[in-house]
């Protein structure tokens, strides 16, 4: 379970950043008062155009960034006051996740298992399960730099799941992947849901959202525009399809703020 309440994140702008953004403001608000809950066994999708604050929100949930204000609870643990314990519950995967090219899948998976403090017996069992599930036995000893994109994605998935996290955070997980490779991720999200894990993923690919999510939130310029169940969203639609509805909501928010 993920519980987010009144989350806010501000960044101090350097002179260079002020120049680049053509602003005199010394502070940029990336996320402004966002609240939502993600339930176990359900897939929560965070939607928004580029620069909406999706990645910042997910980075705060994953404890990479510390919020300026607000609260985050991961599986009942306060992620702000106790980030180390919260991290044990989280699996984190992004579309741009890199891997250590000079290590083999075996070495990399063992490294992350050690960092998560997975006991050796649990590690062997978990590794065997994931290797069989993902078909990784054939390339487990090869250097990651020599693997195909699909193989690398499998290694990334295995790394994310090796400590059997309760909460999985996906930041645009299929970005830059071909449909075959992206299918591994889609399958993983489905599996997580079946296993009763809490899944949150950010995307701007509406077909993916339609396929997977149970609940969704739309954010734009750091502010929440919609938060509810997918079925409610569909019933309130004023356009013919999800993409058009998403664009309509974002544009109307632009009109209001203007």
């Amino acid at each position: 379970m993920i519980e987010i309440h009144d989350l806010r994140k501000e960044f101090v702008l350097s002179k260079q950043q002020q120049k680049e953004l053509n602003t005199t403001d010394t502070i940029a608000t990336a996320v402004n008062g966002v609240s939502f809950n993600c339930q176990p066994g359900r897939v929560f999708s965070l939607l928004g155009p580029n620069g909406a604050g999706k990645t910042t929100t997910l980075r705060m949930i994953s404890t990479i960034f510390k919020p300026t204000s607000g609260t985050i609870k991961i599986a009942g643990i306060d992620a702000i006051s106790n980030p180390k314990e919260a991290r044990k519950k989280i699996g984190f995967l992004t579309g741009s996740t890199g891997l250590y090219a000079r290590l083999t899948p075996n070495e990399l998976i063992k490294y992350f298992a050690d960092l998560y403090g997975v006991a050796n017996d649990d590690f062997q069992e978990r590794k065997e399960y994931l290797y069989s599930l993902l078909g990784m036995h054939d390339f487990q000893g090869k250097r990651i730099g020599k693997l195909s994109t699909g193989m690398k994605q499998k290694v990334s998935i295995c790394r994310t799941m090796i400590h059997d996290p309760e909460v999985i955070v996906f930041d645009e997980p299929t970005s830059g992947l071909d449909v075959i490779t992206a299918e591994n991720i889609i399958e993983l999200i489905r599996n997580c849901k079946e296993q009763g894990k809490t899944v949150i993923f950010s995307s701007h690919i509406m077909s993916e959202v339609d396929l997977l999510c149970d609940d969704l939130a739309i954010i734009h310029k750091g502010e929440m525009l919609f938060n509810g169940q997918m079925s409610d969203f569909k019933s309130q639609m004023q356009t013919d399809n999800l993409t058009e509805e998403f664009i309509r909501i974002v544009k109307s928010s632009n009109t209001i703020s203007a």
Binding site: R87, L93, T94, L115
Partner: peptide, 14 residues
């Protein structure tokens, strides 16, 4: 640059 730091920072290591 390789995008590996983010995952390292999400592990329970200070």
């Amino acid at each position: 640059e390789r995008g590996t730091i983010e995952t390292l920072l999400t592990t329970p290591v200070a």
